[in-house]
Design a protein around this nucleic acid. Sequence first.
DNA 1: TTGTACGCGTTATCAT
DNA 2: ATGATAACGCGTACAA
Lengths: 335, 335
Amino acid sequence: MNIRKVAKEAGVSVATVSRTFNFPDKVSAATRIKVEAAAARLKYVPNASARNLRTQNTKTIGVLLPTFANPVFTECLQGIAETAAERGFSIMPFTTAYTLEQELDSVKKLLNFGVEGVILVVSNPKKSLALDLLQATNTPYVLAYNWDPDHPCVSVNNQQAFAEVVAYLAALGHSRIAMVSGQRHASDRAQQRYEGFVQGIEQANLPLLPLIEVPFIDNAVEAITHALQAERTATALVCSNDLMAMRAIRAAHLCGYQVPLDMSVTGFDGIRLGQDLTPSLTSMAQPNASIGRHSLDLLIQHLTQQTPLHADSSILLPHQLQPAESSAAPSHTTI
Amino acid sequence: MNIRKVAKEAGVSVATVSRTFNFPDKVSAATRIKVEAAAARLKYVPNASARNLRTQNTKTIGVLLPTFANPVFTECLQGIAETAAERGFSIMPFTTAYTLEQELDSVKKLLNFGVEGVILVVSNPKKSLALDLLQATNTPYVLAYNWDPDHPCVSVNNQQAFAEVVAYLAALGHSRIAMVSGQRHASDRAQQRYEGFVQGIEQANLPLLPLIEVPFIDNAVEAITHALQAERTATALVCSNDLMAMRAIRAAHLCGYQVPLDMSVTGFDGIRLGQDLTPSLTSMAQPNASIGRHSLDLLIQHLTQQTPLHADSSILLPHQLQPAESSAAPSHTTI
DNA sequence: TTGTACGCGTTATCAT
DNA sequence: ATGATAACGCGTACAA
């Protein structure tokens, strides 16, 4: 089924059919009805490949996410998907499992496909082959969650946000606060959050407890449990993200602590699910869907209005602490 | 940048360039090197639209999911994405927010794009305009999670699985078991699970408590709390999915029940996150990633080997009960 | 082993 | 308002 058959069926030229679909007001009402009827009869669907070839644009945006297993990224993806739908764009997502190799592979596929732009979350903007390729081929892109002076980014101020988490706990009366994090060098965000932790501790004039670093998320519970047995004086665990916080709560329970009575636990990301936990999760919320929306907006604005897309296009979105049941003032017995 | 320029740069014909990319072994080593060098110099990327137009296939599969907000579907999506990557396919996902309108819209976009097949989760296969369109246009598709005698499906036996959840609780000693569900008529799965509930109750010879139906997931906690205040004798809540179970646990706590001491709670879906909850979630696990993999396998097999794709291609995957901390024998005091 | 030439389905230009 | 026709970039007979 193609435009020619529809033209024949409707008794008009292909040009008219094309116009009926793309500029309905450039065709008389009578013929429009004729054409639409014919198209419906023949179940005609315009061929996007042909259109793309002709117009040289695909109305498609590539999306590169570390994983679908962390709600942070799917909430962001939802924001992207909704905005894309509103704007008439399609998205083509890939996951990278945090590996540089898959980052590069996926970008190659996206380029080959002819996406008009890419939204990506990389582990480290400083050494991303994917970003190099994007720049070499002059493909518009926006980094989400990352923050780097050399690239257009949409993110929150991770360092400041994390410092605020510490300040919040300090204000509650906690003095022995330990941070739980994935591999600190695995991503720029992990590093930024750790720096925020140190900053928060210093500003509150508290002792800097050793970082509880969890190499593999799968044995996070065990790892944290072990760490807690070594460090028996902490009254609060600030975690680098919400998924980690859930595991920290679990580890705390396994060590015989009640949350938040004996141990306060905080997360970072503000995933929707955190509010349905019992105890509900205190978290530093990022506007995940918004990060997705703004990333796509930036890209589309650049595509449609030729606005520049440089490092100074970057958007810093507000973070917001969501106090909830998993944190409270320390009980006196543990001091 | 196109194939002609590369041909000129390499001093060969376009056909040779095309061959070097598609059938490297059909070209002499010397010319291959020449061509590859030229392509690299010019940063040539083959144009997928042109290729698709010419070959009439896009190596792309459409995916239609209700939402990204439920890990069930993103776990499935992950399975699809991984399999697709292995098989050299790309995916183009849309979410439908459980509305028939968006189902249809998205399918139209996918067809227009020229996907070779579609994997979808619909609310009700019996009255899905999206399915009608797919059939009318002769587009291969597989339903995931749905189960219907008229379509190729990949799912579990929802009814039997749910009956087994009831049997498990009955064996633990529970006699007053209430079901918590979203709108029963919103999806075939909700209906099937409710039937499983009734079946399980009958087989265990227990009283059938009124269904706790939660119209809107957003006030699920309140709704369940109210219901629990009306029904004070239940000792177990079997929920239609894991997200609902998390909220049921919360509601139980708000009513002063300890889980599982005073109230056992079970979910359905087996989302990965359930294991990190405290208490960890007893759930009837579906092999979500597997459902994705098998759906895509079915589709690709049909595409590449012309195997038929009918209702009797359907695959029923095994479900598995995952007992965990949220369920236990009822305490005697509440009997 | 390599090259020539046609057509995939569409949009855009130019006539009418 | 409508029609004829030339591209868009590629793959693939077929010819050499």
